[in-house]
């Protein structure tokens, strides 16, 4: 099967600091992959490079055969770890905005998700709580019929009850041939939905394996393995 994402010797440096150091891996279509690591491990940097927000220093990244750029942005749906929307906009304005820019944006799906998550389309972002705003960002990201979803800390700022709902939303709103690369350090919460896990430490890829294989080999959960790896 042709990989949806290929990274070869991907490196990003800031002066002498190596935010990403010779990272190589591939992701096949239909997989949900956890990008795991402590703060500053390079998770967000990797996602930013793949989303075309940051330029790599060296190496190669290809998404469905193309380097990150204008073309890949039409089939990659990216959720940054910060709020990027104008807070005076209403949810309905955002739906119109996204449907005008992304051919794969499903406005009906977005409306349905907003309804299920208890969000009113007439409410302005500034009138919403931080958790509600995160849900809005997630709706906008997951309402696209993308080939690859890049989610940077999608459950970082929401309460535990909302986390399950968001993970369920992620699971039920992506097609079978699409892949998800999800960055988080809340491993216990996401472990249940992951097919594969990538461990990053100080910019280096230290482990990439199917989650089931990790559990069998190490006789522990991915969360426990993560704690063990990052304690040392």
């Amino acid at each position: 099967m042709t990989p949806i994402l290929t990274c070869e010797h991907l490196t990003k440096t800031y002066g002498v600091f190596r935010a990403l150091d010779d990272v190589s891996f591939t992701i096949e279509p239909g997989k949900i992959v956890g990008l795991l690591g402590e703060n500053g491990a390079g998770k967000s940097t990797l996602l930013k490079i793949l989303a075309g927000m940051l330029t790599k220093t060296s190496g190669r990244a290809q998404i469905d055969g193309n380097e990150p750029g204008v073309l890949t942005k039409s089939y990659v749906s990216y959720l940054p770890d910060k709020s990027y929307l104008n807070d005076w906009m209403k949810l309905s304005d955002l739906f119109t905005l996204f449907s005008g820019f992304f051919a794969d944006f499903d406005i009906q799906k977005a409306k349905e998700m907003a309804k299920n998550l208890g969000l009113s389309e007439k409410t302005r972002l500034k009138a919403m709580s931080k958790g509600m705003q995160e849900k809005v960002h997630l709706i906008l990201t997951m309402s696209r019929h993308a080939k690859l979803y890049l989610l940077d800390e999608p459950i970082g700022g929401v309460d535990p009850a909302a986390r399950d709902y968001i993970l369920d939303t992620i699971l039920t709103n992506f097609s079978e041939d699409a892949s998800i690369l999800i960055s988080t350090h809340m491993i216990a919460d996401v472990e249940q939905i992951l097919d594969e896990a990538i461990f990053l430490k100080q910019g280096k890829l230290i482990l990439h394996a199917p989650v089931d294989e990790l559990r069998e080999t190490h006789h522990q959960s991915v969360d426990a393995l993560f704690r063990e790896v990052y304690r040392s």
Partner: peptide, 13 residues
């Protein structure tokens, strides 16, 4: 700033 994430996420040059 963070608003750049929206603009640079769009499939435009």
């Amino acid at each position: 700033s963070a608003h750049g994430y929206f603009l640079f996420m769009l499939p435009v040059k």
